[in-house]
Simulated assay, not measured.
Amino acid sequence: MSEHGSGMRHIATFCGQCNCGCPELFLADGAPPEREVVITDDFGQRIEMSREQLAVLVADVKSGVLDAVLAPVG
């Protein structure tokens, strides 16, 4: 895990198959617990959440809650 910016530890890049500024996941060292997980997008926006919120999101993804979002429309 590398450092990125002030106290941001890079955890994962989502996509990474291009050079377009893919979404990334960081841990913000020194941030308040409710804001220590940071997800950035390729438009310069960011989402800040707690580790507990991230755990719920990961559990939901693993259980298939978001599968319908990825299903083709038609």
Rank of each mutant, 00 (worst) to 15 (best):
S6K: 05
F14I: 07
G7T: 00
E36T: 11
R46E: 11
Q53F: 14
D67V: 02
Q45K: 14
F14E: 06
D67A: 04
G5K: 11
A31R: 01
C15V: 06
M49N: 03
V73D: 13
D60W: 06
M49G: 00
D67H: 01
I39V: 13
S63L: 05
V56Q: 03
V65M: 11
L54G: 01
G16P: 08
E48V: 04
P72E: 15
F14C: 05
K62A: 04
N19R: 09
D41V: 02
S50H: 02
C18E: 08
N19M: 11
F43G: 08
A71I: 10
E36Q: 13
L66V: 15
D41Y: 00
R51A: 07
A28V: 08
F14T: 07
F43P: 03
C20D: 14
V38N: 06
G7K: 00
D42Y: 12
Q53R: 07
M1Q: 12
H4A: 12
M1S: 13
G21M: 04
C18F: 06
D29C: 13
V37L: 09
G5R: 11
P23W: 09
A59G: 03
A55F: 00
L54C: 02
A31V: 02
I11W: 03
P72D: 10
T40D: 01
P33R: 12
N19V: 12
M8Y: 10
A12K: 14
G64T: 00
E3N: 01
V73K: 14
D60M: 09
A55P: 02
S63N: 07
G44H: 04
T13H: 06
S63V: 01
G30F: 00
F43I: 07
K62M: 04
L27N: 02
A71M: 11
